[in-house]
Design a protein around this nucleic acid. Sequence first.
DNA 1: TGCGAACCCGAAAGCGGTTACAATTTCCCG
DNA 2: CGGGAAATTGTAACCGCTTTCGGGTTCGCA
Lengths: 341, 341
Amino acid sequence: MAEQPLVRLQDVAEHAGVSLATASRMLSDPDYGGRAGLRERVLASAAELGYRPNPHARALATATSTNVGLVIHDVRDPYFATLSGGVITVAERHDLLVSIVCTHRDAPRELEYVKRLADQRMRAIILAGSALRDSAHTAAMNAALDSYHRSGGSVVSVTRGHTVGHVVDIDNAGGMRRLVHDMVALGHTSFGVIAGPLRLLTVRDRLQGVRRGLKDHGITLGRDDVVYVDLSREGGQAGAQMLMSRPEPPRCLLAIADVVAVGALSWLRANGVAVPGEVSVTGFGGIPAASDAVPSITTVELPLEQVGETAMELALKPAAPRHIVQVEGTLVRRDSVAPPH
Amino acid sequence: MAEQPLVRLQDVAEHAGVSLATASRMLSDPDYGGRAGLRERVLASAAELGYRPNPHARALATATSTNVGLVIHDVRDPYFATLSGGVITVAERHDLLVSIVCTHRDAPRELEYVKRLADQRMRAIILAGSALRDSAHTAAMNAALDSYHRSGGSVVSVTRGHTVGHVVDIDNAGGMRRLVHDMVALGHTSFGVIAGPLRLLTVRDRLQGVRRGLKDHGITLGRDDVVYVDLSREGGQAGAQMLMSRPEPPRCLLAIADVVAVGALSWLRANGVAVPGEVSVTGFGGIPAASDAVPSITTVELPLEQVGETAMELALKPAAPRHIVQVEGTLVRRDSVAPPH
DNA sequence: TGCGAACCCGAAAGCGGTTACAATTTCCCG
DNA sequence: CGGGAAATTGTAACCGCTTTCGGGTTCGCA
């Protein structure tokens, strides 16, 4: 495939009149000594010849690379896009390239991708939006991560769920609980929850937060008060429809995620249900669409960008001790909620 | 860094009782012959030992990799996120990993990233949202891309602007022209344009489309009818403010991009200007937020996902002949526009 | 001035694959 | 059944860089 001979370290060495070994040291080990002026000479030669080190050769020799892998559900999801932005920002600061892979919440695919990232000797693997509730898969993932980790790779997961590596733990349950308390304080007593697939740990946690928050005030959810939909705009529409077409629809709709709330809102508007007049709506996550929506959506804002940054920073720390960074969301009251009646 | 000896091709070869060379051929050249049953035996050994080829070694030997580089402005921008989604979808189908780098519209950074992707022997480099109007930078970029291209790499740019590689050309000017025609047909005669930085080729093209479209009906823009802002929500707010605080504000606001239109809308709402009652607003691009906004935004929808897919598909084609795929947007009339008065 | 210790540098052995080339075997057909 | 072509397999030379190891210098200090 090559056609134009590129300049190798060997060429630089010759041009500078030193051995390959010396050239290598001058170029990539700043702590190495060396005769006065030698380093400058090598650097000058490298610059003059336009030398660019071959990362693969380097990776092969050192068994490590200058890339990091980021595993997310989907780039198109603003939640992950924002988080990815944070990761990339910090990675850039450390001269690392980020390879993004999207699992679309498919377990086998996730596993395969992690293996491939490990094969590529990625400096770190960051798992965001992983954590599926499937024991066989979890075991396989842990095995793969463990092997990767033992061979020197660094692992970070956003939300717990893996046996190895640092963790950025988003307080889903706590945030949701506070949100619910706020709604109760507003006077709400009849709730409907638009939840997502229970396979997702995140969903379970948030749902638990809802239950706890309600229980704190002696309210319990009936079987029909929770509907399970896809984590998408369409899911939100479907969820709103299901809950609102009951004989006695709830006065407050708790969506498990902002994007779901946006969908719910659009269904309510399309069907002439006044928000927050007839029904209040809340989200979770803090994506930009939540504040742009009309009415703007009350939600728990997660510092997603910062979560990404933190994850990347953790990835650069030594494996031990294991760090666990807790991240809290902040309740943001907006126009989509009002006291009932 | 290593600690746990991984299984190498050598091990597989020994286990299968063949030479390294044969093992390599059986494993990575499906067209190679071989004694009956030999291939199966090697494959079986590989599977049994859990062999995973080292991509760096392979890349070093073949001077090509199984990764592609994607250069965008920012993952957080839904425009690019959607496009990236398309790229990733197709890349996955071909077993390729995608490395995303964000330039944040910084020319030197873009150049450096392209060089690094080339260093990494990426199978292809896809440039989206590149095309800055800076002749020194453009020259340097072309040089870098040309060298990469001659050494066997494949180049695709979304929108023209580079001298080498395939092109997915989005008809920005034409789409904008049609949009303007539609607004004129609606009865509009006084326009304000919220444009972006003129360094961006995309912005220039769309602006030209506006001018042409208006000129087709004998309307010309005054100096003050166009304001230049950042391509962001905040930019849109600022732009709306500038245009609406003139003594005789325009009756139709043409935003250069959806995200800008969303910002404009939010300023208008915050300042009690009725849309589309007092003023109509249009966007460009077709991001989800445009349809979720209230009122939903009239825009030209670009098939961004498909643009990404096409780009990735082109990247897999041989370099010659040079393909240039034209992409048209489709006008989507929504609630943000109405006849004036 | 003498003698280890510390330092500098180069030769060479990998890292884990691919592939040109040569050696061997198999095949086909006169 | 012989002989050359075709097919198969092995040997070894890379790909471009890092790093161990050891010989040769230089330095500090007695």
